[in-house]
Structures are given as C-alpha cells and as structure tokens.
Design a protein around this nucleic acid. Structure first.
Lengths: 344, 344
DNA sequence: AGCGCTTACGAAAGCGCTTACGTACCCTAA
DNA sequence: TTAGGGTACGTAAGCGCTTTCGTAAGCGCT
C-alpha cells in the first residue's frame, strides 16, 4: 500500500530512480527526450512511492493546471446537479479536480465568477445554463473567454451558442417541437405556455420548436398565450394562476422546464383541477423526480449527466479552429400528466 | 495552462505603491509589521489595479491554500446538492473555491478521494454524508484527517461523529423521535420501517429516535419490522414491496429518508393503496420536492443549506483543542401523506 | 552618550515544479 | 578521420508568492 508520506517531492522520486529532476519531470509528463526504459523506471518508482505532484508548484512553473471550473446557475437545482454529476465523474477518471461556482442567473455575477476562475488559473472552464438572447450581455463574457483561450485555457459551454466556444447544445428546439406535437396529437387546441422570463436563449429555442409543431398543423405560436415567470417552481405557480385567470378555456399547459411544471401541477391541485382529465401538463428536462410526481410528468428528457460528460470531453480535446458543437438528443417521455383534450 | 501573459503580479503592486515585495505581501495579508499608513496605501493600489493573488504561488510559498474540498456521496442527490449550495455560498463570500468530489457511499473510494484532496493540498476538507457504524472502516479516514490537521489543514464533517473532527450533526435522533411520536399520535400501531442498509450511523441514530418515541408509549423498536434496502428511491420501492408482502397489516411506513419515501409512495400508488387513508408514509430530510409529491410528504426537515454553511464556518475558525459539535435542529413538517390510523 | 529594545521595512532564500539551454555521447557522411 | 546532427540527459533559471533574517531608525533608560 503506497503510503502518502508527509511531503514526497519529485526530487525524491528522481533520486530513487537515479535520474535528474528534469528527466523525472519529463518522464512523468510523457514528454519525449527520455528513453522508454528510463521513463518506465521513473513511472514505476513514482507509483511505488505513491507520488502525487504538487499542483501548485506544477501550475506555477507553467505546467497545465489540472482543475476545471464549472459555472452553474445554482447547484441545488436538479438540472445542474445532474450535469455536475457527469462532469465530476469524468474529472475523477482523469484525475482532475472540479471547482464549482454559482452564477445565480445573473450575467454580472456570472462574469465575476468567470474572472475569478481565470484569475485562479484553472485550466478548463465549463459554463452551464441558458445564455442571454441579448448579445450585448454575452459580449463581455465572450471576450473574457476568448482571452482565456488565447492564453491556452480550454472552454466548453452547455446550452449556450453565443459564446464562441465549443458547446454541448441540448435539443431545445426539437424537444419543444415534440412536446407541441404530442399535445396537438392529443387534440389540444387551447394550449398555454409557461415560459421563463424572456431573454434566455433556452426559452426562445424551446418556443421556436413549439412554433414549428404548431405551424405543421397550420397554426402558430402567436395564437397561444405565453406567460412569463421565473424558471422555478414558484414561477410555475405564478404562471399557472395567471393562465387560469386570464385563459380559462385552456386544456393544456406547456411549461418550459420541469420546475415550472411542478409549480403548475401544485397550483392545479390546489384548484382541484384534475390532471390530465381536465388539464394536461408537460415539462422539459426530465429531472429525476418528474417520474415521481402524481400524476407523473410528461416531459422531454435531456441526458443531463451525459451533457456534463460531453462538455468536459470536448474541453479535454485540443482546441479546433472553429468552435465545435455537439447536440444532445432528446426523448419524449409520455407519462400520466397528459391525456386527450376534454370534450368542450 | 494560461501562460504568464500580461498578468498583474504582486511586484507590480509593490512598485506602484513604492514599497518592497515583502511589505506589500504583509500589507495584503493583514499581517503586522507594517504601518497602518503604508498598509492602506498598498491595499488601495491593489484595489485600483484589480490585483488578484496567484493562488498557486501563494500556496507554494507556504501560505494557506484557499480552496476547500467537499466530499459528498453523490452531488446529484438533492440532500447533498443543497448542502453544497450552502458551502458554495459561504465560499463565494470568502473568496474561496470549492472542489467537489464523490465518495459514492463507498468507504474505500472515499478514502481515495480524501487522499487525493490532501495530496492536492487543499486547505480545508468538508466531508458530508453518513458515517459507518463500524469504527474500523472509519479508522483509516480518521487517521488521514488527523495527519492532515496536524499539517495545518482544517476539517469539518457533516453528519459523522466518529471522525474526531469538528462536526455539524443533524438532529437524527430527535427527528426520528418526532416522526415516531407523530405516527403514534395518529393512532398507528402497526408501523414498518424502511431503513438503509445497516452500518450507517445515520440509520442507527434515526432508528434510536424512533425507539425512544416507542418506549415513551411503552413499546419498543424491536416489535417493528425493519426492512433494509438502499438509501434511494429504488431502495424505497424494494422495501415497500417487502413490507406489503410480509407485513400486510401495516398502516404506516416510516422511511428513513425522503428518497426511500418517494419509492414507497410510488409502490403504494402502483398497488392502489391510498395514502394516507389506508397507509401513512413519512420521510426524513425534507428535500425540496417533498412538498410537491402527491400526496405531499410528511417528513422531518433538516436545514441542509445551513448545514453546508455551518460546516464551512466551523472549518474557517481556528482549530480548538477538542472537536466542536454543532447540532442542526429539525422541524417536523406535517403534510398530506400522514393521517389517522384506519379502523381495523 | 551609550545601551538595549522595539518597530517598520527591505533583501533574499526558498516552496516544488517545468523548461530553456548546455553537454556528453553515438551515429552517419564526406 | 572529422564535421555535422540527432538523442538522452543534466544544470539551472525562473514561475509569484511568503517568510526569515538583517538593518536602520526611533524610543526610553541609565
């Protein structure tokens, strides 16, 4: 059992292997200029001794920083915690450390976090969560990230297209379309949308998918009431109240994420409106509790954990000339919260 | 990885303030040996220039590391993600970075993560999640943490008493007792317990609270069927199936955490057993979805976010001679999943 | 004055690593 | 043979900071 001595340094390994510090460093970094024979010996000794490089010294000396910074809106939101789970998993396999910080859905605060991560010299930055439709808001972050990449850092985004970096893009549009078609297929015509406050690209993309579905049926999103509130359970509550009050004929509520859908369901329950008999409800993301609600929630599943994994994978590849994009795929998961439109 | 670049260094600040490197360092660290006047000037200049210390250099030179390592069983478990939320919040205020890693409820893997964090020279380690009842299993971790502390590191645990470090201890026993009393007060006598696999201190503590409640009524835990399964939704499912099969007279199921309770509810729904009319169900923790289930879940609320905060606060205080303990408090939250015991 | 003592500061020695740069050595070609 | 060009490795110069140690100045005391 390799016992991690108090402070084992690279010199110790080098000495034990009978080589110089430089050679030991090269051998462990897999750099060439070392004979295979010597390199093997060094690695062997290092393993025996249980040597772990001091990341501070390594980074200070100009080596690659082995920590990845992950920016999420809020870690205690299942969407982000699942993404984080994927990232941490891959990071663990690669021996990387993950630093997580909150942006709190606030572009300025996000920018501050970004700068902090950069100042802290992380090697990789992963930035998750919806982007802002206003390019001006993203511009500063974009510039900061570009500079970071020019200095050798790597960046990948999850769910944001305007950052000019590699990105994992959830199937927001296709998912929105699938939900729209599902509801239309069930005969719903009076559909209301519970959307997050405007300005988020995620919202726009999902809406545009819904629109596509409607157009395929000779209709359009313009006909539907769209109620804006926060991307949270409370937002869903508020939206649902507003819909019930202002659009009483509604037979289906399409919430743009599961949190809102949960709020919608709670409100409907409070009003004793039976789901799905009198009202169908759909969400988006398929967070793990969606299956446990009563009624269980029809939603579009995004592979959040995989998205986290993919993002880190992207960032671990060398930078390409053009920003790469990876689509996530999606699955319509039909559960008990949707049913045929009630007869009028 | 980011190259030296146009980064601002402490020398730059020192030069600009007309002092030596050493004085600048002392001034910014708030160390004495610098006149208030000079210190102010240095801080002023540093602020103007937007200087951020290079943490790698700082740590390498022997300063305190400004990163905190947080070990959780699994970040995409709401219990842990809420704790992490609290930790990240405090860390953000203090300008600390949080590194999260998974232990996966596996003592060996946890130990490996611990060693990795220590090797990476984090300054603070926070370790969350139930401990193991077998002291042998904890011994190695305990030793490792003690050594880490002797080298100047700080450690705080959340929910583990056997580590010999400062700890935030959830009110497991009192909470268990509250749940037991609640059910007994409703007239339930045939109560079954869905517990996690043995060996976790959390399980033992909660059970002991239940036992206390029973004894206050002249009964004892020994009379109740206790079914062991995983601390997850699936575990709850399995436990519920077993209870229904082996203990058909049961009128209340006490699940030792919310995840299990959710599984229990799902199973009851599948069996068309109405909650709470035919069966009451309680959970533990009050994760945020507990309120959104149908029926909403009666449970004991632990202030997870606060627990994260408290743990980091503890770790930020200087080490005391004896390990400190902080209790979290708890609240019994009565919702719709519990009701009077059905007449026989 | 002369002595010690404190205080405010600077010079310089590392912390453990990466990476130019230098140097032996060997192999080939003229 | 010797110049020329790899290849394998060692030497040493930092990376940006903290901290020890040294020093000069200021203080009160004999």
């Amino acid at each position: 059992m390799p016992k991690p001595g108090p402070r084992l340094r690279l010199v110790d390994v080098a000495e034990r292997a009978g080589v110089s510090l430089a050679t030991a460093s090269r051998a462990l970094a897999g750099r060439d200029g070392v004979s295979a024979e010597v390199a093997d010996r060094v690695r062997q000794v290092s393993r025996e001794l249980g040597y772990v490089a001091n990341p501070y010294a390594r980074t200070l000396a100009g080596g690659a920083s082995s920590t990845v910074g992950l920016v999420v809106h809020q870690i205690d939101d299942p969407y982000f915690s699942e993404i984080a789970g994927g990232v941490i998993q891959v990071a663990g396999e690669q021996g990387l450390l993950v630093q997580i910080c909150h942006s709190g859905r606030n572009p300025e605060h996000e920018l501050r976090q970004l700068r902090h991560l950069i100042a802290q010299r992380v090697g990789i930055i992963l930035i998750a969560g919806s982007g802002y439709a206003d390019p001006g808001v993203e511009a500063e972050a974009k510039r900061e990230l570009a500079a970071f990449q020019d200095l050798g850092g790597r960046v990948a985004a999850i769910g944001r297209h305007f950052l000019g970096v590699d990105a994992v893009l959830p199937d927001n549009e296709a998912g929105g379309r699938a939900l729209g078609e599902h509801l239309l297929g069930l005969g719903h015509t009076r559909i209301a949308v519970a959307a997050a406050t405007g300005g988020l690209t995620t919202v726009l993309d999902r809406l545009s998918g819904v629109d596509a579905a409607l157009r395929a049926h000779g209709r359009s999103l313009d006909e539907l009431p769209i109620v804006h509130a926060d991307f949270t359970r409370d937002g869903g509550r508020i939206a649902a109240e507003r819909i019930l009050r202002d659009h009483p004929g509604t037979t289906a509520i399409l919430a743009l994420n599961d949190s809102m859908a949960i709020g919608v369901l709670a409100t409907l329950r409070a009003h004793r409106i039976v789901v799905p008999e009198r009202m169908s409800v759909v969400g988006f993301n398929d967070v793990s509790v969606a299956a446990d609600l009563a009624p269980s929630l029809t939603t579009v599943r995004l592979p959040m954990t995989d998205m986290g994994r993919m993002a880190l994978d992207l960032a671990l590849k060398p930078r390409s000339r053009r920003a790469r994009r990876r689509s996530t795929g999606h699955t319509l998961v039909i559960r008990d919260s949707t049913g045929p439109a009630p007869a009028r």
